[in-house]
Write a protein that binds this DNA or RNA. Structure first.
Length: 565
RNA sequence: CGGGAUGUAGCGCAGUCUGGUUAGCGCACCGGUCUGGGGGACCGGAGGUCACAGGUUCGAAUCCUGUCAUCCCGACCA
């Protein structure tokens, strides 16, 4: 494609509202343009890059036996009511009424739709397994879109759904997808960490995320130093260090005037924080509950939500706390009646804790669980952090930020039951179909790849996903010899099956070099009067410092070698 | 939802505090001359509902009120 006929232009400065590097470079290089918060238009360069990624995804999904379909973005709200997610999906569904007054939603994901599709087409175990996927627009009304393409409201996603007759078959379908994802990310030039994850609003049991490690990432993951375990911080399990054994002593009230926090409490008593019990108040569906955890640990709200049956807990307001007769700073579950108590299992790993006395300015020594307070639920609800101990092999966790680029789930039968999507087994017995689902953020990958592949001058895109393979720059367009040579190379390289972006503009060399670097095309070919006088053309990989000179006749083969073709 | 910041040409900004020519500058854009290997120089142009609405005033980009938009931080352990 000739740049004189192209659409979109490069910017010397990025818009002031772009602050992550991928956002800045994608806008400056003319790949994308913002329309509204979390809503981007793809210019030709950006769209081509996204299409290259989509092509890779299609190849790998097809190779794994999945079949491409397409489902509506606008869906009747009914099916969301049927699954029970109409009210519970976070962020809340966006939608509108059609002209007949029927409630429609803009789909944030497609479990409901695909389940109805499969229900109509699968009756027997002979029809299974099957895996359906699509690459298509999603809309989620995110409370805070940010970081360019890394978190948008409208985005492109590849979503796949597997349907199996048995758990073993689901395991196989799931493994096939994990392998396909590894292939996809590898081909995109990315190294991703596969970590255990919470399944969140989608539902299901086993779930893993593919995390592209990057400083601008929103997710925090914990990785064992031995490489055998990695998990999103929302999910991570760890070995809680037990306190030294002591025999339980009698409770004793002590005055602690002015002490409000665990740190102050531990300091004033000269004890470690793990000798204290911390009480935290949450409101769950209008009910205030008290959550008790050892003072050196913090509550993981995702774990808490899961043991509460999936209802989102929220920090209680001061008013709710007061109405429940709880005393902030001196609260505990000791002696509390009529209020639900959730206890982290860390409190079983020690004795004689210091806890609040539920009286302003007082605490109680030698509190022991379950002797001194009840726990309606005792479970692991603690948040792991860097330095904690891996549950698999005792290794130490380190933490890292990353971008969630893929997420796979074993759903089980939650949706097939909602929609009566059943099959008959060999004995004629009816069962709900066992499902899995597999998401991959395509437009997010565009941003993620730039986060991973750039330098101070612009993008350094891998050939597999670059919008063009060759940036052909003619330095002296008013020189007939140069123009003929450049035109000839353009034709030759294009005919050889290489995507060429031909900079035939009447611009200074510096401008062309700057743009070539910014746009990030893997190979740069320069035709100039100077080189031509020696019968030579200049070739350079975007990621190399120095260029090499080759005779005109050898350019095509040399470029192919550089691209590994 | 809460907190903070910002809205002036396609992009980056000054001007606002202290109201008063025709609202400026850099980049980009159009015409021209020179130049020609890392965003070059000069000459001449075009481009603005100063986010929007209302108010104060002889006079508002500037002061007041409201609205909208965009970005950042927080969604947290009493």
């Amino acid at each position: 494609m000739r740049l004189t006929r192209y659409f979109g232009k490069t910017l010397r400065q990025a818009p002031s509202d772009a602050d992550t590097i991928s956002h800045q470079l994608l806008v400056r290089a003319g790949y994308i343009q913002q329309l509204a918060a979390g809503s981007y238009q793809f210019l030709p360069l950006g769209w081509r890059m996204q299409q290259k990624i989509s092509d890779i995804i299609r190849e790998e999904m097809d190779a794994a036996g999945a079949l491409e379909v397409s489902m509506p973005v606008i869906q009747p709200r009914e099916i969301w009511e049927q699954s029970g997610r109409a009210e519970t999906f976070i962020p809340p569904l966006a939608g509108f009424q059609d002209r007949r007054g029927r409630e429609m939603v803009v789909a944030p994901t497609h479990e409901e739709a695909v389940t109805t599709m499969v229900k109509a087409n699968v009756n027997s175990y002979r029809d299974l397994p099957v895996n359906l996927y699509q690459i298509q627009t999603k809309f989620r009304d995110e409370p805070r879109p940010r970081a360019g393409l890394l978190r948008t409201r409208e985005f492109m996603m590849k979503d796949a759904y597997s349907f199996d007759a048995t758990q073993e078959s689901l395991d196989n379908s799931y493994d096939l997808m994990v392998k396909a994802y590894i292939n996809i990310f590898t081909r995109c030039g990315l190294e991703v960490a596969i970590v255990e994850a919470d399944s969140g609003g989608i539902g299901g049991k086993d779930s893993q995320e593919f995390i592209l490690l990057a400083e601008n990432g929103e997710d925090v993951v914990l990785l064992c130093e031995n490489g055998d375990y990695g998990a999103n911080v929302e999910k991570a399990e760890f070995v809680k260090q037990p306190n030294p054994e002591e025999s339980p002593l009698e409770m004793e009230e002590i005055a602690t005037p002015g002490i409000k926090t665990i740190d102050e409490l531990a300091k004033s008593l000269g004890i470690p924080t793990n000798k204290t019990a911390k009480a935290v108040f949450y409101t769950v569906g209008g009910e205030v509950i008290v959550v008790t955890i050892r003072g050196d640990l913090d509550v993981n709200e995702v774990k808490l939500r899961n043991i509460l049956g999936g209802v989102e807990p929220r920090f209680s307001t001061p008013k709710e706390v007061a109405n429940s007769n709880l005393v902030p700073g001196s609260a505990s579950a000791v002696g509390l009646d009529g209020i639900r108590s959730i206890v982290d299992d860390s409190l079983t790993l020690g004795s004689n804790f210091v806890a609040g006395a539920n009286k302003e300015g007082f605490h109680i020594k030698n509190v022991n669980f379950p002797r001194d307070f009840k726990g309606d639920i005792v479970a692991d609800i603690a948040k792991a952090t860097a330095g904690d101990v891996c549950p698999r092999d005792g290794g130490i966790f380190h933490d890292a930020r990353g971008i969630e680029v893929g997420h796979v789930f074993k759903l089980g039968t939650i949706y097939s039951k909602d929609f009566d999507a059943n099959f008959l087994d060999e004995t004629g017995e009816s069962h709900p179909i066992i499902m899995g689902c597999y998401g991959l953020g395509v437009s997010r990958l565009v941003g993620g790849i730039v986060e991973a592949h750039h330098d101070e001058n612009g993008m350094t895109l891998p050939a597999a996903i670059a919008p063009y393979l060759v940036y052909l720059a003619s330095l002296n367009v008013d020189d007939e010899g140069v123009r003929e040579a450049a035109d000839g190379l353009y034709a030759e390289l294009t005919n050889a099956g290489l995507d060429v972006l031909y900079d035939d503009r009447d611009e200074k060399p510096g401008v062309k070099f700057k743009d070539a670097d910014l746009i990030g095309i893997p190979v740069r070919v320069v035709v100039s009067r100077r080189g031509l006088n020696n019968g030579q053309i200049e070739l350079k990989l975007r990621t190399d410092r120095e260029a090499t000179l080759v005779p005109t006749a050898e350019v095509r083969d040399a470029v192919k070698v550089m691209l590994g073709r």
